[in-house]
Computed example of a mutant assay.
Amino acid sequence: MSSPREDETGGLPPQIASRLRDLRRRSGLTLEAAARRAELSPAHLSRLETGGRQPSLPSLLALARIYGTTVSELLGETPPERDPIVRTDRAEAVTADGWTYRQAGGSGRAMQALRVHVPHGPRRGHDLVRVHPGEEWIHVLTGQLRLVLGETEHILRPGDSAHFDSLTPHRIAAAAPEGVDLLFVHTLLRSTVAELCIGGPVPHAP
C-alpha cells in the first residue's frame, strides 16, 4: 500500500512548480526544513518544485498549511466569488491519521473554520505539544474533549468551548471511546516555527 504522502509520477506545469518553490522561500524555509514538516524527503520536494512529480492531495494539504495558504492558491487557481454560505452537502470530508475534517467556512479568509472528528486512541504525534502564532476557538458538539493548555488539563463536554492564544503550548485528544466532534476555528497566520494544531503535519523532534 502506498504512503499517503507518496506522489504520482508525471510533472506539474512549470508555473505551478516554481510557485511551490517561491512560496517556500517566502516562508523562510529551506528545502530540508519544508520537506521535514511535510513528511517528504528533500529530494522528493525538490522534484515537486522542478516539475518532476505531481503532488498527491495529502502533500498539497501539508505544503499549503506549512506555507500559510490554501491548496487553490498553491496551485495558482483564481478563487471564485466568495459565497458566505457553506452547504453541508458540499463540505467534502478529508481524513488524515484517523481525524476527519470538513470545511465549515469560506476560503481566502483571515481565519479557517472546520468541523473535526477526533477518534479515541493514539494518533501519531499525539503527545507532541504545539505552539504557533494566532488564536484558536474550539466548541464541542458531541463526545468529550481532553484539552491540555500549558500544564493544565481540561475536559470539555458538549456545549463547552475554549478560546486561547496559540502560543500557549497545547494538545487535544478525545476523552471517551466514541471520539469527539468539534467546531474548530483558527487564524491563518503564517509561521515558520510550527504548524497548526489541528490538521498540520506532525513536526519532527529536533
Rank of each mutant, 00 (worst) to 15 (best):
M1L: 09
M1T: 09
S3P: 00
P4K: 04
E6K: 14
E6N: 08
E6A: 15
T9D: 14
G10L: 03
P14Y: 00
Q15Y: 10
I16K: 06
I16V: 15
R19A: 09
L20K: 03
R25T: 11
S27A: 15
L29R: 03
L29K: 03
E32I: 04
A38L: 02
E39F: 07
P42H: 07
P42L: 08
A43T: 10
H44Q: 12
S46Q: 04
T50V: 00
T50E: 01
G51D: 01
S56E: 06
L61I: 12
A64R: 12
R65S: 14
G68H: 00
T69V: 06
V71T: 12
E77M: 15
E77Q: 13
T78E: 14
E81G: 12
I85K: 11
V86M: 02
T88E: 13
T88N: 11
V94T: 14
V94G: 06
A96R: 15
Y101G: 01
R102T: 06
A104N: 01
G105I: 06
S107C: 07
A110H: 12
A110Q: 11
A113G: 07
R115P: 00
V116R: 04
G121N: 09
G121L: 11
P122F: 03
R123D: 10
G125F: 04
H126S: 14
V131K: 12
H132P: 03
P133M: 06
E135G: 09
H139P: 01
V140W: 01
T142V: 04
G143V: 06
Q144H: 12
Q144W: 09
G150Y: 02
H154K: 09
R157V: 10
P158G: 07
P158S: 07
G159N: 04
G159M: 09
G159I: 09
S161C: 15
H163W: 12
D165C: 07
T168A: 07
A173V: 06
P177I: 01
E178I: 02
E178V: 03
V180R: 00
F184D: 13
T187K: 05
L188P: 00
L189Q: 11
L189W: 08
A194T: 09
A194G: 13
A194L: 08
E195I: 08
E195W: 01
C197W: 09
I198Y: 03
I198A: 14
I198E: 08
I198F: 10
G200R: 01
G200N: 05
V202W: 02
P203F: 05
A205W: 10
